[in-house]
Design a protein around this nucleic acid. Structure first.
Lengths: 151, 151
DNA sequence: GCTGAAACGTCGGAGCT
DNA sequence: AGCTCCGACGTTTCAGC
């Protein structure tokens, strides 16, 4: 992971569909060299994949919410199986602190949001934060301070 | 936004680098038809962009944390300007509820995390949840129930 | 929405610095 | 480890329908 790898990561985080030819031009390497580096980053698991980023409201979802929940240990497995069945739950993290899980979900209406929360908080107390705006939208990961000169 | 558009969105959310040829094969349309549909989805803002997904721990970040903070109204603008200067803060949402903002950040070490929180909670009380695992990683957005037959 | 053809990008391998 | 050259193949783009 040298500077060039981080340059490639920066470019691919901003435009995941950039061609190898264009990447090569931007970092000043040949196409085979770039292809090889990207392949290594993928194989090493640094690049987990590529995804189109969808605007939820443009896609018909009115609300995005972040929900924290406290679930008793014995119910956790069943709770996670429930989440699998709710497509509106877009991701879920197991966290330290007072909450057990924090998840991000979308809903097509307030009524739907209420219904979804109704199903979810059978498993514990929830705290719902509705996203009003996103002043800092997803930003590319940059090289960590200590790894700047690693090879 | 018909079924085919959602099929394309599903495919591109799973593999953002899928070629138009492959997309066309999977949805049973010609390549120009698919190209045109994707272009429209991009122009309409449904597809906001394409991004490589990076594994933070493989990239040298030890911790991912979700931090909620309560900031007094007059300090909000200055707080957001601070966040801009901290590359470890990957996204930040303005939310309803007891908290003002919820952000996701990474740190290269526990010491770095402590330092980052130190800078952040000059603006208000924070609640930090460290992500231990992600039982439900980012899932593709599916068509909302009501929009199923929209055109 | 579909062809078809030209331009461009990608992926091998061989040989070299 | 990187570069170039090469050829074959796949992909994109643009015209015209």
């Amino acid at each position: 992971m040298d500077d060039l790898d981080w340059k490639l990561l920066a470019l691919l985080q901003c435009n995941g569909r950039m061609t190898y030819t264009e990447l090569a031009r931007q970092v000043g390497l040949s196409v085979p060299a770039v292809t090889e580096r990207v392949r290594r980053l993928e194989d090493a698991g640094v690049i987990e994949g590529y995804a189109a980023h969808i605007n939820a409201s443009a896609a018909g979802y009115v609300v995005t919410a972040l929900i924290a929940i406290t679930v008793q240990q014995p119910a956790k497995a069943k709770f996670l199986r429930l989440l699998e069945t709710i497509p509106e739950v877009l991701e879920c993290h197991h966290v330290t602190g007072a909450d057990s899980y924090i998840m991000r979900l979308v809903a097509a209406s307030m009524a739907d949001l209420e219904r979804l929360i109704g199903r979810i908080n059978l498993y514990g107390e929830t705290r719902t934060s509705i996203v009003m705006s996103t002043p800092l939208p997803a930003r590319p990961l940059q090289p960590p301070p200590t790894a700047a000169k690693r090879r």
